[in-house]
Amino acid sequence: MELGSMNQYIRSVELHRESISSFDRYPFCLPAVRNLDNLSLHPNVTFIVGENGTGKSTILEAIAVAYGFNPEGGTKNFNFSSMDTHSDLYGCINLVKGVKKPRDGFFLRAESLYNVATNIEELDKGERGPRIINSYGGRSLHEQSHGESFLAIFMNRFGGKGVYILDEPEAALSPSRQMSMISRMHELVGRESQFIIATHSPIIMAYPNSIIYEIKEDIQAVKYEETEHYQIMKAFLSNTQGMLDILME
């Protein structure tokens, strides 16, 4: 599937299979990685969805690290590390880039947001010029709830003409905040931004100008209504009591 144009920042992801010594070890043993060849990315929004443990965050992390982001999140200027847990998949993929270069970028992970917030405060202690936190809304991220700090980064730090890679943003956001995220994401797409998002959220993945890759035994492009997440949520909301009766038998 050829989606990319020469004008988008990241056109596709290629797995260098010849550089992998064994597909029996993690993360290469994951079906999603084992069957990965070439993944074309949407110029606006690419979603990677699937059950826990299928490898969607592993693939997303590899894309982010291969692009130059810190494995725990932040901009390309962040180089802190609280624990080295990222896989070496990033060294076995190639990112096919377009001719345009982004002016901005961020790798945002709900699970390591605390570490990003801490690093910002540590950097600001040694800064004599404008504080870094000013570009995040001016208020310490540690003085806000998890969801508030996540949204503060999304609303204030993301400025457009950027590559934004998000790992399970719904972990920090309520349903109404997820809708706010869609609205802001649409604004940023209008400012020449590209998003790559791993998510479980049927709300977030409803964004229309996008492609959804669903991971099962391999990675396939699917329509929104075909995703397992959408079908399960629709079935539950359409017949809540019936579903609860089955679950609690």
Results as ranks from 00 to 15, higher is better:
E2L: 15
E2D: 14
I10Q: 01
R11Q: 15
V13A: 06
L15W: 01
F23I: 14
F28Q: 07
F28Y: 08
C29P: 10
R34M: 04
S40K: 13
I48K: 03
G50T: 00
E51S: 07
T54N: 07
T54D: 09
K56T: 01
I59H: 04
L60H: 03
I63A: 05
Y67M: 06
P71C: 06
G73M: 08
K76I: 05
S82V: 15
T85G: 11
V99R: 08
F107W: 05
L113S: 01
E122N: 14
L123G: 11
G126S: 13
G126P: 13
P130S: 08
R131L: 13
N134V: 13
N134D: 15
S140L: 09
L141M: 10
E143W: 10
Q144S: 12
S145D: 07
F154E: 02
M155F: 15
N156E: 09
F158L: 08
G162K: 01
G162V: 03
Y164T: 03
L166S: 03
E168S: 03
A171C: 13
S174T: 14
R177D: 15
R177G: 06
M185E: 00
V189C: 08
H200A: 07
H200N: 12
M205E: 10
N209G: 14
I212F: 10
I215P: 04
Y224P: 06
Y224T: 01
Y230V: 11
Y230E: 08
M233T: 12
A235P: 12
A235D: 15
Q241A: 12
I246D: 13
M248I: 14
